[in-house]
Design a protein around this nucleic acid. Structure first.
Length: 601
RNA sequence: GGGGACGUAGCUCAAUUGGUUAGAGUACCAGAUUGUCGAUCUGGGUGUUGCGGGUUCGAGUCCCGUCGUCCCCGCCA
């Protein structure tokens, strides 16, 4: 072993011991006589002291050390004089007096400061280009360690709960519905392609048919869609599936799992059971199917108050069967008109014709361009319904219910943010249940809201033909602080119902056979009732780590254009490689060939 | 596909209406310094203003294009 201890473990009780440490030079403080080197490794920081009276050779070498050099030192652990202790360091009560130093590798000047506070301001493309340096930072190492601990705890929990971890293929088959697939050309079968899995969905159902009973996997998933702060083209799910269960079994397994994981992350105790609300309630009260329940500002239906209103904007909407809803952004009465303009733009972007609002002064007077249209009864009704007080701000949305919910839902988040009422240290979970089975796609066709293997609610089966959009699914999402953490469902386990679902979705029989024949056949060999769920591991760790992007909890993430700036992927391949897999590249004439990224550096 | 922000020294940023030799902090380099731990002191500018073109007597600044990063909408069964 090159080292006797890590840089994080020496304490007073080690005083007098001869030790050997390895690590990176954090800082060199050269006082002309004594030289201090802070030595860093994954576990911490230890101060090493070089005194020319101990060893002139070691002192000479220490003087040449620079930041990020890799060195090995030998020395004796000594107590620091009491007034010299450094309470900021775990090892701050001791130092190592060294008489031997070996330089294992010199480092060039780092491309950016590795100090967490400064690195937080460095442009992210630079951090990604030199990711191996970025990952030397304490904060990034803490994030990866937290990720490790959370996933280990998940494995322990699921193992104890009787789940078997099973790996499923990465090279699989494209299922064109849903997200865009990443494709891999086949060399053996000219013209054919594998797809990378968007989720292990079908495999895990087939494992249930196989009798595996309880499966889980820390599964990599791939979706070729546009990126966001919480979306990467490849991401990790804690994926599980269970046989002979109802949704209650899923809720209780996941409740327990999340409580364990939040505890493991040192984020306190989750009150169980995690509360539930229906999809309809989530949309109605929060304007979102992933409501952030850390604050109020709920959407309130005030349509009835304006039944006979003189205000034509509201009257016309109500006459057409729309709704008028409002939120009380409490305490935001002083919101400036320029901010109101921004919020109005947001409302219009979300589909509203405009944004009506009332700003209430500290003296209780209402200020609003539409105040003159309101009757006293309407004002009275609003005051009571929305509990309007001095200093409040009331935002209105009037349109079809869907538009109003969506727009006010977005405004609620913006207003909550502006009000500073969203506590980053609280972890508020909720289940959202009873999702609709189907939705109308842009081209007017029916499509699955979750996926086509989701079981309809048994009570709603008769509606499948008559009023399919009203059919509820046995599907559920788990939501944390306004982020969709995961979702799942009870699956269809009868081949006939599965076939019927594909008919409802308008898929031709031959296409169904081609894409899903294997699954329907499998259901015909005694498939047990089963269901499952998948949790976004990156998102969960991101929230537990207090990060704003999943990139900060993924070792080697991609940019918004899905580039790996460090490896420079994707990249061109040799003509030979393309020939092997029977692929010819066909670019539009004006498209320049791919070239190395040039970045701002 | 759409909207927005950004790109100047290794890093973070500044640079008046277009005007002299593009500055500051930090990092880095050299020297000094025997108890520091954001060490300190002295000295040193290390630059293709992302790239290409245009307007102009003159462009970091204005215009066009392009490359790249981030945020959001669409998209994400």
């Amino acid at each position: 072993m090159m080292r006797s201890h890590t840089c994080g473990e020496l304490r007073k009780e080690h005083v007098g011991q001869k030790v050997r440490l390895c690590g990176w030079v954090e800082t060199v403080r050269d006082h002309g006589g004594v030289i201090f080197i802070d030595l860093r490794d994954r576990e911490g920081l230890t101060q090493v002291l070089f005194d020319p009276r101990d060893s002139q050779a070691a002192w000479d070498e220490a003087q040449r050390a620079r930041g990020e050099d890799v060195i090995e030192i030998e020395g004796r652990v000594e107590p620091r004089p009491p007034d010299m202790a450094n309470p900021k360091l775990a090892t701050g009560e001791i130092e190592v007096r060294s008489n031997v130093i070996r330089l294992h590798n010199h480092s060039q000047t780092p491309p950016f400061p590795l100090d967490d506070e400064e690195a937080a301001r460095v442009s992210e493309d630079l951090r990604l280009t030199y990711r191996y340096m970025d990952l030397r930072r304490r904060r990034m190492q803490d994030n990866l360690r937290l990720r490790h601990r959370v996933l280990m705890a998940a494995r322990r929990y699921l193992d104890r709960a009787g789940f078997l971890e099973v790996e499923t293929p990465i090279l699989t088959k494209s299922t064109p519905e849903g997200a865009r697939d990443y494709l891999v050309p086949s060399r053996m079968v000219p013209g054919a392609f594998y797809a990378l899995p968007q989720a292990p969905q079908q495999y895990k159902q087939l494992l249930m048919v196989a009798g595996l009973d309880r499966y889980f996997q820390i599964a990599r998933c791939f979706r070729d869609e546009d990126l966001r702060a919480d979306r990467q083209p490849e991401f990790t799910q804690i994926d599980l599936e269970m046989s002979f269960i109802t949704p209650e079994d899923i809720y209780s397994i996941i409740d327990g799992l999340l409580a364990v994981l939040v505890r493991e992350a040192g984020r306190g105790e989750v009150a169980l059971p995690i509360p539930r609300m229906t999809y309809a309630e989530a949309l109605g009260r929060y304007g979102s199917d992933k409501p952030d329940l850390r604050f109020g500002m709920e959407l309130v239906d005030v349509s009835d108050l304006f039944a006979g209103t003189q205000f034509k904007v509201f009257g016309n909407v109500l006459a057409k069967g729309g709704v008028v809803k409002a939120i009380n952004a409490e305490g935001r009465g002083a919101t400036s008109l320029s901010v109101m303009e921004d919020w109005t733009a947001l409302a219009k972007d979300a589909g509203l014709g405009g944004l009506a609002y009332i700003r209430v002064g500290e003296d209780g007077t209402w200020k609003s361009p539409i105040l003159k249209f309101f009757s006293d009864a309407e004002k009275q009704g609003l005051t009571e319904r929305l509990n309007i007080k001095a200093g409040d701000l009331v935002l209105f949305g009037a349109d079809a219910a869907g538009v109003v919910n969506c727009a006010l839902g977005r405004l609620r988040l913006v207003a909550g943010e502006a009000a500073g009422v969203i506590d980053p240290n609280r972890f508020v979970f909720t289940w959202v249940t009873d999702f609709p089975l189907l939705e109308r796609s842009e081209d007017g066709r029916l499509q699955s809201m979750h996926h086509p293997f989701t079981a309809p609610h048994p009570d709603d089966l008769p509606l499948l033909d008559s009023d399919p959009l009203r059919v509820r699914a046995q599907a559920y999402d788990i939501v944390l602080n306004g982020t969709e953490l995961g979702g799942g469902s009870i699956r269809i386990h009868h081949p006939d119902l599965q076939t019927r679902m594909f008919q409802v979705l308008g898929l031709p029989a031959d296409e169904v056979e081609d894409r899903f024949g294997h699954l329907i056949r499998a259901l015909g060999y005694g498939a047990p009732p089963h269901g499952g769920i998948a949790l976004g591991a990156d998102r969960l760790v991101m929230l537990l780590a207090g990060c704003e992007s999943i990139r900060d909890v993924i070792a080697f993430p991609k940019t918004q254009k899905a580039m790996d700036l460090m490896m420079n992927a994707p990249a061109k391949v040799d003509a030979r490689q393309l020939r092997d897999v029977h692929v010819r590249v066909d670019l539009p004439l004006e498209t320049p060939p791919p070239k190395p990224a040039t970045g701002s550096s």
